[in-house]
Structure formats: C-alpha cells, structure tokens
Simulated scan of single mutants.
Amino acid sequence: MAEGGAERIHLTSQAVADVEAYLEYKRIVGDADKDLPGGIMTPEQYEHFKKTVVVDRIKNRLFVSWTNPDGMDCKLVGPETPCFCGHRYKAHRSDYNDLPPHPIPVPCQERGCRCRSYRYLPSVVGTQPPRCTCKHTAEEHDARAPHACKRSGNACACRAYRTSYRCECGHTTADHAMIVETREERLERGKPVGKVVPYAAMGGITGFSSLIDGYRRLDDSGIGAPSAEELRSPMPAECKYFMPPSQLQAQPAQLHSSTARRAIQPDRRHAAASGQPAGSMPTVKSTHGSQHTTATKPTGHSRK
C-alpha cells in the first residue's frame, strides 16, 4: 500500500503483454462476444472472427457523420458516441456482409430498443441533450423516428422531437443530416478516410482530430486548413492571452495564427450574450479546501 492509501499494482512484462493483447481483442471484437459463455471468444472463434467478420468490415466500413448544410461534418461519430435512443454507437449494427441499399440502416442491437437507425443528438450541458420544444426531455420521446413524445401517455400533443438548439456552426439541429456512407462515397465528397483498421464501430473516426467538433477541425471534414492569407494576417490583440510571455516579447510583430483567431470567435459570441465587453475575459472561480478565491484575467490593460 503506497503512501496516502493509493494502491500500486506491479505487472510483469508478460502480464503487460497479456493486457495489451486483451485490449486489442476488445477493439476488434467489440460487443460481439457479450452473449458467449464467459463473455469471451475461444482462440478458434477469435481467429474465425478475424477471417470473416473483420474482412467484411474492412471492405464495407461505414463512415457516420452529423453534417450541416454546408457539407461540414460537425460531429464524427465514434464507438462511444451516444444515440438518441440512449445507447452508444458501438451497440448499433455497423458490420455487413453485403451492404443494403441506401439509406443504409444502423439499427440498435440492444434488447427491447426500438431504434431503427443511429441518430446523433448533441449535448447542451455535460451529457444532457437539449429539450424538445414541447418542454420534455429527449428520454421522454420514442427512440424510433420521428421520436414522438411519450409523456403521460398521449397527454402531450408532440408527434416529433424538435429543438431550437443551434450547433456551434450556426445551423439548427434540424438543419443537420445523419450521413452513413461507404469509403468510396466519402472520398467523392472530398472527406478524409484515414488508414484501414480492423476495429469495431469506428464510424467517422479517422484520427485524433476526429474527436474535435467540425468548426474547430482543420481538415477537409471540418472548417478546413487556413489559407496562406489567413496565416500571414496579424494576430488579434485578444490572442496574446493564449501565448507565453517569452514569445510575446521575442517576436511581437511576427505573431500570426488564424487558428487562435478562430478559437476566440465562440468567446466573442458568449461575451455578447452575457453583456461583457468583447475583449474581456470571464471570471474564474477556484476552490481549495474550504477557501474560495476569485480571479479575473486582465481585459487588455498592460500590467505595471
């Protein structure tokens, strides 16, 4: 037992290799073994799975994205991305021996779930999705499209889930579309497809940048790479709060960053909504034990 009550686990090199092998196994198998005795495949079943299911998975991989009218993939769906039905993407069918005609369904495979095809729903606070215009939560609506309200039987007249929530791209939720496409179709749209991988329920994930929302993603699936003109343009004064003092003093006239300039746009919108000046920084509260401290960053005035 280590100091402070924390437990330290020591593994041999063989144990570490075994853990890595199991993690690789789960990335490939996903939830396909949950109904097997012991919840795991035998070595023979695993090898057969890789020679059959994985081969078809690579050939017929489905790329799933939540896309706005401008063609930007605001959300690239991954294994852990939740669906309207409350289950994650990895609980939906994404492996096909032969692809069905379009639109390709991605139904939920959890017992008793009425979801016929995956639908992404953005979160407003934490994991809480926005309420419907009928004032009821998404959980109180049917998992099957068009997601009629189930509140108190038929007491609510809502026949389809609708929300006024706007994505950070500026479009409403209703303006977005769920796109389920093949590798060839995604390439035709000019979107990245990443490397060929054998893992289950990868959806639209093609790299670490796929975890970022589209309006911040600097590739062809998001807002795109900045132009040469943007890279040469002067950095806004607000961006100095994001730069180390050493860089500010070393090259104050050569600092350029369209990425940082884009990053502050949401802050400007939030400042306008809260009545704060555009150049001001929000108040940050921190708690240390029983003491509470409040600190506010400067709003453009030089320190003496």
Score class of each variant (00 low, 15 high):
Y215W: 11
R166F: 09
E185W: 05
E188G: 12
A155C: 08
A174T: 14
S227C: 01
P198G: 12
D175T: 10
R151G: 02
T172E: 11
V196S: 13
R217L: 06
G203A: 00
C167T: 00
F208R: 14
K135D: 13
N154P: 07
E140I: 12
P129I: 12
P244L: 03
D219V: 15
S210K: 14
C167P: 15
G204W: 00
I223Y: 00
T133N: 04
I179F: 05
R189K: 10
P130Y: 02
A174W: 00
R183N: 13
R186L: 12
S210N: 10
L187Q: 08
K191T: 11
M235K: 03
P130F: 00
C132E: 06
H136W: 02
A177E: 03
E139M: 02
E140H: 09
L211R: 13
A250S: 03
R131Y: 06
S233R: 11
M178S: 02
G170K: 09
A225Q: 05
V196F: 07
P236W: 04
L187K: 12
R159Q: 05
G204K: 01
P192W: 00
K135V: 11
L218S: 12
F242E: 04
R144C: 15
S221V: 07
L211A: 12
P244D: 08
G204S: 09
G170Y: 10
A177W: 02
R217T: 15
H136T: 06
R131T: 14
C169M: 05
P236M: 12
K195Y: 13
R216E: 07
L218R: 10
E139F: 01
D220H: 04
T182N: 01
V196H: 14
M202H: 04
G170M: 05
I205S: 12
E188K: 15
C239G: 08
H171L: 04
R186V: 14
C158Y: 04
R189V: 14
N154D: 03
S164G: 14
H136F: 06
D213N: 02
R186D: 09
A143M: 06
V197Y: 14
V196C: 11
P146E: 04
Q249G: 11
P236H: 03
R131Q: 08
K240H: 02
K191S: 10
P234I: 12
I205W: 14
Y215C: 10
R162C: 10
Q247G: 07
P244W: 09
S221T: 05
D219P: 08
C158W: 00
H141Y: 11
P236K: 03
G222R: 03
S246P: 01
P226T: 13
C156L: 03
Q251N: 08
P129Y: 11
A143E: 05
S209D: 09
A160G: 10
